[in-house]
Write a protein that binds this DNA or RNA. Structure first.
Lengths: 276, 276
DNA sequence: ATAATAGTGTCTATCAGACATTATCTG
DNA sequence: CAGATAATGTCTGATAGACACTATTAT
């Protein structure tokens, strides 16, 4: 029997597992941090949900929502749990982005963070919960030069200038954004870097995936959908090319609708074509 | 001063960090597992480096190389260290793929694994090291229907049949491969799933990234380069279309060379054009 | 010479970018 | 009616897929 194989110490698997000492290696805490993105009211830009920290470290700074992973759940489940706690939303797009492991990224102790990206079709009212002092949607502008996170109501401006740095991975050249804080406020921990990675990935993928459809309601107009692409890519697209590009992904519902974008006349209403 | 801000317990940041008890949350062990891929001798397919386990659990099974992350290093550094130990290679393509967190994926204790993909331009002789019983290159065939890992010399065949399963993430439809073991041998832990994720990602990216250039030597022929794409995508490409596609990424060295692929006549030699 | 592969030409369909034009709505 | 946006047409250049044809090498 396979189970009766003995290792170099003469132990069967059962005996080995019984004697296994998990304390041999030092262990990090593991958290998930989530970028929760949605479009703003008139589809002119992206919004991101931030939490104001109520305790050290970074007390008073704004941070990505997140929390510790429990032993009986996957990181994905932990992220989903956190997402529901903060927004009340379930069954929405959620994808793992990158795992951040730089030593010292949390001054408390050894913490690694698995970053997730969530895309929601409508903004939900948010309020501060249990341990968080506050929660709010911020206008997010992410271009080649800057990251701006603004909330007028709370009078918070978090601004980073971006420089590009090239490095090589094998023979492949990569461009990295190096953030440089120019505002008084800043994001807690290494959350700017998480934001940068997630946005880079979203930008690369939106063209070949269908992530844009997660940022509009289930019935939408083409100007609205185009606004999503333009907000993510931070550049204007040609209307006709855009419509050609997505034409086989959508179908008309038959109705008309006034776009939530700045609107001159009524628009045809579309839905996402599932079979495509 | 920012540093003098006190939290709800009246502590400054310095006092808080001093009093912080890292034992409040249970912590997982964290490892890196690496897919180390290279082309075989005649560029007819991919090879993958596997390690034979010398201890429980999965004693005698083959597994991806990997190891625990230390507190003073990033996961990337840990993966690089492991890669060098196994192959002697440095400065090669290495990229984080996905972090695996399913409870129970390691029978010993709570272990999460950060998976990496390494692409090497030439196969290196490998031998079993310290704790590993053995190490060997396996022929890797990854198609829509099957995963085959073969090593004739050691008479090992690890074969999985693949079924496709669709699921939804938000409104986006995804296709997942579900592996079903049909050979006696199998990969340890959840390493088939890691293999599947890494290969899926490589396939999606190879078209728009330059990862193929990490799998050929610095001077190569176009038949060799095409063989890399075909091995990764597991389907033939049209010669002319392929050459048009990569024409602005390469430049002639001026020399000629006999391809390591099955060869009828000499080929022009190319190099990767860095500026393009 | 012949088989085998290397390298190129061409045709089609599709698509991104770039403008231009017509249609319809709001005020 | 005027201004604004919606929707569509057309042209160019690039690219993927599909074949066909010529060139050069090993045996």
């Amino acid at each position: 029997m396979m189970k009766e194989v003995r290792n170099k110490d003469g132990l069967t698997e059962e005996e080995f597992l019984k004697a296994y000492n998990p304390g041999d290696y030092k262990r990090p805490s593991v958290t998930t941090d989530i970028l929760i993105l949605g479009m703003n009211e008139d589809y002119s830009g992206l919004k991101i949900l931030l939490i104001k920290r109520a305790d050290h470290p970074y007390l008073g700074s704004w941070a990505l929502p997140g929390g510790f992973i429990e032993e009986d759940e996957t990181a994905h489940q932990a992220a989903n749990r956190e997402l529901k706690e903060e927004t009340g939303l379930e069954d929405i797009y959620l994808d793992q982005v990158y795992t951040f492991t730089k030593p010292g990224r949390d001054p408390r102790t050894w913490v690694i963070s698995i970053a997730y990206l969530a895309l929601i079709p409508e903004l939900k009212k948010v309020e501060g919960l249990d341990d968080a002092a506050d929660a709010a949607w911020f206008d997010l502008k992410f271009t080649d030069d800057t990251i701006e996170l603004l909330n007028e109501e709370k009078d918070v401006q978090i601004i980073y200038e971006l420089k590009k740095e090239t490095f090589y991975n094998g023979v492949i050249k990569y461009e990295n954004y190096i953030p440089d804080k120019v505002s008084e406020d800043s994001l807690a921990f290494d959350h700017v870097e998480i934001l940068i990675e997630a946005m880079k990935k979203l930008r690369e993928q939106i063209r070949y995936s269908n992530q844009a459809f997660c940022l509009v309601e289930d019935k939408f107009t083409l100007p609205e959908l185009q606004a999503v692409y333009e907000a993510v890519l931070a550049r204007p697209l040609y209307k006709k090319s855009f419509r050609d590009m997505i034409s086989n992904l959508v179908e008309e519902t038959g109705s008309e609708k006034t776009s939530r974008t700045k609107s001159g006349r009524k628009c045809k209403e579309y839905r996402f074509k599932m079979e495509g």
